[in-house]
Design a binder for these strands. Structure first.
Lengths: 335, 335
DNA sequence: GTGAAAGCGCTAACAC
DNA sequence: GTGTTAGCGCTTTCAC
């Protein structure tokens, strides 16, 4: 049904050889001006477009990169993708986006799909469920360029970019302390994520630095990362019935922040609790109750990640530069 | 650097011919059980993966579909994409997402990229800026399967799916009237979008049906679709200084809704104005001031669109079924 | 300055 | 049951 013109068609019509046409199209110096013009004109006329599959087969590169994120319906990730796209576009790369929905199964299948060499490299933010990362390690060992962003993976040595989560959590917690709060609860993401532990560590450090004892009963993990509303509600409620009722709450992610607010709105207790949470939602400032928030530089992170990947792809020799770049987060206090 | 194993490698190692290996890998009945086992085992061992470019070149299909949206960082579109992905995944299709940012230039380039036959079909939601759609028409005439969703295009005869915008706008407006409002303003998207005019028509019809005269000065268009905060602010302010100050506001899109709320929050006038707006934000219920909203079935729209496209791709003969499917929207009233 | 031929990885027709 | 051959669209030697 859809039968695009090929180089052969042009060659036949102009009584030239395919090779000459090929050269003419790529403006090779070897081909005569006259011929060039003729070819270009005819190509345009019949709307010739090169077949990227043939090109990829021949050149071993596809000028496309794969992006693996948990979810595009999430402000943070969609902003990251925007950053990735911007850079990719500038370098002539196509972006293929795939979602894991935080499901291990899905992550394995989709990375498999992407990696099948239809992409020149991979940008990955880990699914929360993933514990066993052999599917990624294998590809990496086979030489497929991979860059991790946001939810990075310790076990694989490559370029990575993420927020300085430790620092952001430290500052957020210290801010709460400065404002006079003493019983600060922490609602955390799935514990197997790098970012979860970094944020927890920052929180602990700030408490410690300010001579507040760390109380395990004030920390709740959400393995479903806020996808399961029930889980969040239960966690929040456990915190609220705690004999040492918290006077402040530090929330570790976008989805958790909004779900928590919704839960708190159902009770009357929220009047007394101050909230600060990670969020890249573009309407966070309109939410009620007011919430202070930590905003990650998502767009920038996407740009950095894409640049890293493109540099990896472009490098002729294996790269042993295992830098991890840390971006600052911005904290907005709503008194 | 990245040199995946090929069928030839297997053939050589096992002293077979490439065709036998190929058959064995695809579990053809022609090949002996013994051989099959050997091939499969060895393929697994050396982590053989088929080369999709070679496959596409051979089979003329790539099992991938392109999606063109204005923006993924937008609840409505990211939900649509989720729907598309679900269906695509079930059918073994890859999804390639591309964004126009509502820019004509960008839409042309990106559709061009996608269409280069690296995809078997295209799912398009038009950029707001686009007036001249020859770039799409051409592809369609060449036989590339195309399905429009949400922001559809009248001029091209193919399968389409969108919200019943007329009906949704009618109901929303009538709801406002039923609640006693008489001076209902309308904040609209770019006028060249199909959905803008449908919603405007529904609004007009509801007024008319309820014997309220249509007042042009109560309608404001935002050509930038809410991307330009200034534009929205100005529009809102024009409405507020209107001598016939509106007592209610019907807002035509997601982005406009949140930007409007932000603007209204800056003034004190919002106390007196009732708002209903299109929104697929998952935190719309947490916004302050409270806003009633019209929610499109975005996920379902994505599913329908993807199914339509896959059916088009699968059909051996040209399809002359120009159905447009209309989905209902759901209205949530927050008194 | 242009053409012929081989090959990228895979499959389908046609042998045997 | 397995191998040979040709070809998908394109590029790249190597001829002339």
């Amino acid at each position: 049904m859809f039968n695009p013109a090929t180089i052969k068609d042009i060659a036949k019509a102009l009584s030239l050889s395919p090779s000459t046409v090929s050269r003419a199209l790529r403006d090779s110096f070897e081909v005569g001006e006259e011929t060039k013009k003729k070819v270009l004109a005819y190509a345009k006329q019949i709307k010739y477009r090169s077949n990227p599959n043939a090109l990829s087969l021949k050149n071993k590169i596809s000028y496309s990169i794969g992006v693996m994120v948990p979810d595009v319906a999430n402000s943070f990730f969609s902003q990251t993708i925007n950053g990735i796209e911007t850079v990719a576009y500038e370098h002539g790369y196509q972006v293929i986006i795939s979602q894991s929905y935080d499901l291990y199964e899905r992550e394995v299948t989709n990375i498999e799909h992407l990696a099948n060499r239809s992409v020149d490299g991979l940008l990955i933010s880990m699914s929360a469920q993933t514990q066993d990362y052999r599917h990624i390690k294998e590809l990496h060992e086979n030489g497929l360029p991979i860059v991790f962003f946001d939810r990075i993976l310790e076990g694989i040595k490559t370029l990575k970019v993420t927020t300085n989560n430790y620092e952001a959590a430290y500052q957020a917690t210290e801010l709460l302390i400065k404002k006079g709060h003493k019983r600060i609860a922490h609602l955390a993401n799935a514990p197997q994520l790098s970012i979860t532990m970094d944020r927890l560590d920052g929180y602990k450090a700030a408490l410690n630095q300010n001579k507040i004892e760390y109380d395990e009963s004030l920390v709740e993990f959400c393995v479903e990362c806020g996808r399961d509303v029930n889980e969040v509600e239960k966690a929040i409620n456990r915190l609220l019935i705690n004999p040492r009722t918290p006077d402040a709450l530090f929330i570790a992610s976008d989805r958790l922040s909004t779900t928590s607010i919704r839960t708190l709105n159902k009770t009357d207790d929220h009047k007394e609790i101050t909230i600060i949470g990670f969020s890249n939602s573009d309407v966070i400032d309109l939410l009620s109750p007011k919430i202070s928030y930590i905003r990650q530089r998502a767009f920038e992170m996407g740009q950095v990640a894409a640049k890293m990947l493109i540099s990896l792809i472009g490098s002729k020799h294996p790269v042993y530069d295992f830098t991890t770049e840390y971006l600052n987060a911005d904290i907005y206090w709503k008194g």
